[in-house]
Every structure is written in C-alpha cells, then in structure tokens.
C-alpha cells in the first residue's frame, strides 16, 4: 500500500510540451483510472510514473519519496502492457519468475510465489507452456501474474484489455477490479474506454490535451462535469450538445423553444447539454424527425434531426418503442438535468 503524488508534472519532446503540469494525489490502495481520447497524454503520464519516460519538470513521489531519478526496477512498481509484452521464448513460469530471478531471490521462494500467484489467477495448468500457445485472455492473466508476483507497491496498467474481444473484456474487467480490492495495491489504470473507466475507478482522471480536465469519483464526474469536453467524454451514449440562444422568457433552439429555467441568468448564445437518458416522452414541447434507430434490446436509441442543427439528437427510449424512420417524433427535456456551457471557453456555467 502506497501513496503517489504528482506535482506540476510536465513533459516535453524537444520544443513541444505534451503534458502541461499535472497534479494528482493518490491515496493508499486507490484505483485511479486515467481516461481520455487517444493522444491526450495518458500513456505518457503513466510511463513517467513507471520511469520509462523521463520527466521534464515536476515531481513524482511514491510513499513521499521522490522517484524522478530512480530506475523503473527501484520504484517498486510493476506494469501490464497493452500487448502483454511476455517474453516469447520463455515458458509462462519463466516469464513470471524472471524478475524474481534478477532480484537474486532463492529458488524455492521464487517457486512458492509463482505457484501461489498462478493459483490465484488459475493459470497453474499452463505454467510450462509458451505464451504463443495461449489465448488472448490467458496471456492477459499471465501478464497480470508477472506483475503481481513481484509484490509491488504500485500497479500500472496501460490499456490492458484493448486487445481482447468484448465479452472477455467485461470478464477481465471484473477480475482485475476484484483482484485489486483483494490485494489492496495502489493502482493506476490507463484506458480510452469510458465504460471501463466508469466501472473500475475509485477516482477518475479525465485527461484532455495534456491537462487533467477533471478529477473525481465516476458519479461526481457524470453528475457534475466541469466542462463540455468532460461532459461529452463521460457517459454512453454521449451527451447531446445543442447551440441555443437564451432570452428572457425562453431558450431558442432553432425555430423551437423551451421555457428558460429560473437559475439561468446569462443571456445570449450558449451551449445546452442533455444526456440521452434524460429526456421526457410524456410531455412534448419539442420535435424532431427520426433519422436512425438503434435497437439495443433493453432500450432503443433514436437519432432525431432538428432543423438548424447538424448533429442529430440522441434519445434513449424504452425497448418496446415502435418508431419509423422519417416520422416526426415529439419529445421534451428533463429540465432538472440540463447542463449549460459557455460557447467560447466551453466551461460549464449552470
């Protein structure tokens, strides 16, 4: 169990700065997920903690000790890579034992640890096989085993599930989370998949262009996003954004309008955000043309075209809904769940 502190972490390649000063304090045993679109710097940040990437300025502390200049092996971390990075010429056993051998641990101690971890992950049966003879899910577990067997202070995961098929991914997601709770090791987990982020994290760090856009528990971020980027990135299907104009009596969305909520005091152009699950179908002060229908079984996603907006509005409806493409569909917002963002700064106003 360890704490990790990042203070004003920056990273530049030659003259381009890719990480612009990040502050995160991670508590003992916490499961932190770094999430963001590709190229936002989340892997770079993780690799800086791992020691695989140099730190341009700022500090990384593990257990209150600055580790900026320590080799990866001396930081007490272990890492699981996206493509597993198992040594192809070694058996599963040797893959897991390699790090321990380099620590000059006695043979019987190594054997005991490897067997224990193999039992924990249920990979005892393939200890003598080569990684190339294993399926994706098995390789994934071996990679985890190699990380666990070192008994690290910190686990680092770099998109470990993105090479697995959808079903296995859900399974492994659960396994990783339960395992982490059992071992209570502080964990940083990188992913671009926001479902993974929401389900696994104790706290989320949403990264955008090398800046921590928001840090908080999954529900905090879902309920109370700080800006338009976070609001759009977290939640599936993604939040709808509509350009509108706020007047004294009503908010105009193209030709249509809704009553202005009392707490909205700013006037003029503004961006309105509403999640697909926050629509009312009983009342109908707005309408749109059905453009596309996605049937997901438990519910149906309707893509509605409103005049004056390029992006269709996505509404999540009951699974029994019967709609036809081209039909006009009436709907209304759940006014308590509206978000408002500044057009220029994209910061949330209300």
């Amino acid at each position: 169990m360890s704490t990790i502190n990042m203070q004003q972490l920056k990273k530049s390649y030659q003259d381009t700065e890719v990480i612009h000063g990040i502050n995160i304090d991670i508590e003992e045993g916490e499961f932190i997920v770094l999430v963001g679109p590709s190229g936002c710097g989340k892997s770079t940040l993780l690799r800086m903690v791992a020691g695989l990437e140099s730190i341009t300025s700022g500090e990384v502390k593990i257990d209150d000790k600055v580790v900026n200049d320590l080799e990866p092996k001396d930081r007490g971390i272990s890492m699981v890579f996206q493509n597993y990075a198992l040594y192809p010429h070694m058996t599963v056993y040797d893959n897991m034992a390699y790090g321990l051998k380099l620590m000059k641990m006695p043979k019987d101690e190594i054997d005991k640890r490897v067997q224990d971890v193999a039992k924990l992950l249920q990979i005892q049966d393939y200890l003598q096989r080569r990684p190339s003879k294993l399926s994706g899910g098995q390789r994934q577990r071996v990679a985890m085993g190699r990380a666990i067997v070192r008994d690290p202070k910190v686990f680092l995961f770099d998109e470990p599930l993105s090479n697995l098929d959808a079903k296995l991914r859900v399974q492994m997601r659960m396994q990783i989370k339960t395992l982490q709770q059992k071992l209570a090791v502080t964990t940083i987990y990188v992913t671009h998949d926001q479902v993974e982020a929401m389900t696994m994290a104790d706290r989320l760090v949403v990264l955008n262009n090398g800046i921590a856009a928001q840090i908080g528990t999954p529900m905090e971020i879902y309920d109370d996003p700080k800006d338009q980027f976070v609001a759009g990135f977290i939640g599936s299907p993604a939040m709808n954004f509509l350009d509108c104009e706020v007047c004294d009596e009503s908010i105009k969305i193209g030709q249509q309008s809704i009553a202005t909520p009392t707490h909205v005091t700013q006037r003029g152009k503004i961006v309105l955000g509403i999640r697909p699950e926050h629509f009312n179908q009983s009342v109908s002060d707005l309408q749109g043309t059905v453009q596309m229908i996605e049937k997901l079984g438990s519910n149906v996603l309707l893509y509605l075209k409103m005049e004056n907006s390029e992006q269709p509005v996505v509404i999540q409806c009951d699974g029994q809904l019967d709609a036809k493409i081209g039909a006009v569909y009436p709907f209304s917002f759940n006014t308590e769940k509206l978000y408002f963002f500044d057009t220029n700064t994209q910061q949330r106003i209300y």
Partner: peptide
C-alpha cells in the same frame, strides 16, 4: 522486437546486457 519487451525487462530489473 517490440519495444515493450525492453520496457518489461527494465521493470523486471534487467540491465541492458542482461
């Protein structure tokens, strides 16, 4: 040879010659 193997071995504590 994928770079991750080199990184994995660095984390495992292998020197360059190892």
């Amino acid at each position: 040879i994928p770079d991750e193997l080199m990184e994995a071995s660095r984390i495992d504590g292998a020197s360059p010659m190892r």
